[in-house]
Computed example of a mutant assay.
Amino acid sequence: MYKLHVIPALKDNYIWLLENNDKQIVIIDPGEASPVISYLKKHHLCPLAILLTHHHIDHTGGVSELKASYPDIEVYGPSEINLQINYLDKLAKISISDFRFDIISVPGHTLGHLAYYCQPYLFCGDSLFSAGCGRIFASNYKLMLSSLNKLKQLPDDTLVCAGHEYTLANLDFAKMMVPDDQAILEYDKFIRKKNITLPSILTQEKQINLFLRCEEKFLQNKFICNNELELFVFFRSQKDIF
């Protein structure tokens, strides 16, 4: 029913477009406007709305220029964003034309971070990455772990559309931590053949993403952690200095 487009932007950002059968699109996290405008014109696409996951400029920087180019476009996101947009913090769902998105609160990277799920696509900004997760600027590891566990409950065929191309660096970290993990080694070998590694599949992430595996007793014992949260804090603190 929907067609997914990805536009590389800035240093390593991804801007996502979701298209319906009428060539209408929703734009997710336009960190800059010019590549989006060029893409829309080239493919004769009509933008209906922008969805923003959080307030960081590399996810919101293109909004003003896109609004200037397409005055009728609606912009939605969390109230932590200091722009004139429609706030979604208190809503569970949003409909835009025939698009239906579940709105998922995923605080951790920022306190107001939202994710959007339009089956099978998950637009998760900087909360969940392939083989990794976002830095915790909100200083609350428990919140971030809870958010990741919430995303982990989505269907196995969920396509993870994250905000950055960090996969290879995340896999390098995972291989350092668990060098004998066959699932991680095999996925690393497979994914290095690709220039764009996203979207990834949630069922795969649950095998190769250490931040989604903190409940595993084997890993807790290996790193001398008493519980899931302790292991998550350990992994995230090690990744921060990796």
Results as ranks from 00 to 15, higher is better:
His5Val: 00
Ala9Glu: 10
Ile15Thr: 13
Asn21Leu: 13
Asn21Gly: 14
Asp22Phe: 14
Lys23Pro: 02
Asp29His: 11
Pro30Lys: 08
Gly31Ser: 06
Gly31Tyr: 02
Val36Asn: 04
Tyr39Asn: 08
His43Lys: 14
His44Trp: 06
His44Gln: 15
His44Phe: 11
Pro47Thr: 03
Ile50Asn: 08
Thr53Glu: 10
His55Lys: 15
Ile57Ser: 12
Asp58Val: 11
Thr60Pro: 08
Gly62Cys: 07
Val63Gln: 09
Ala68Met: 11
Ser69Arg: 10
Glu74Ala: 12
Val75Tyr: 04
Tyr76Cys: 00
Gly77Pro: 06
Pro78Glu: 01
Ser79Cys: 09
Ser79Trp: 02
Ile81Ala: 02
Gln84Met: 11
Ile85Leu: 13
Ile85Pro: 04
Tyr87Val: 14
Leu88Met: 11
Leu88Gln: 06
Asp89Gln: 06
Asp89Met: 03
Lys90Gly: 06
Leu91Ser: 14
Ala92Phe: 09
Ile94Ala: 02
Arg100Met: 10
Ile103Trp: 01
Thr110Gly: 00
Thr110Ala: 00
Leu111Phe: 10
His113Asp: 11
Tyr117Ile: 07
Pro120Ala: 08
Leu122Ala: 05
Phe123Gly: 05
Cys124Leu: 05
Gly125Tyr: 05
Ser127Leu: 10
Ser127Trp: 03
Leu128Pro: 01
Phe129Gly: 01
Ala131Pro: 09
Gly134Ala: 03
Phe137Pro: 01
Tyr141Gln: 07
Lys142Gln: 15
Leu143Lys: 13
Met144Ile: 00
Met144Arg: 08
Met144Asp: 09
Met144Ser: 11
Leu145Gly: 02
Leu148Arg: 03
Lys150Trp: 04
Leu151Ile: 06
Pro155Gln: 06
Asp156Gly: 04
Ala162Arg: 00
Glu165Ser: 14
Tyr166Asn: 14
Thr167Phe: 06
Ala169Glu: 15
Asn170His: 12
Leu171Thr: 03
Phe173Arg: 05
Met176His: 15
Met176Tyr: 14
Pro179Tyr: 07
Gln182Gly: 00
Gln182Ala: 12
Ala183Gln: 13
Leu185Gln: 13
Lys189His: 14
Lys189Phe: 10
Lys194Cys: 12
Ser200Tyr: 05
Leu202Glu: 09
Leu202Tyr: 06
Lys206Phe: 03
Gln207Trp: 03
Leu210Glu: 13
Phe211Gly: 04
Leu212Cys: 07
Cys214Lys: 03
Cys214Phe: 03
Glu216Asp: 15
Lys217Tyr: 09
Phe223Met: 04
Asn226Val: 00
Glu228Phe: 04
Leu229Arg: 07
Phe232Arg: 07
Val233Ala: 11
Val233Pro: 01
Ser237Tyr: 01
Asp240Tyr: 12
Phe242Tyr: 15
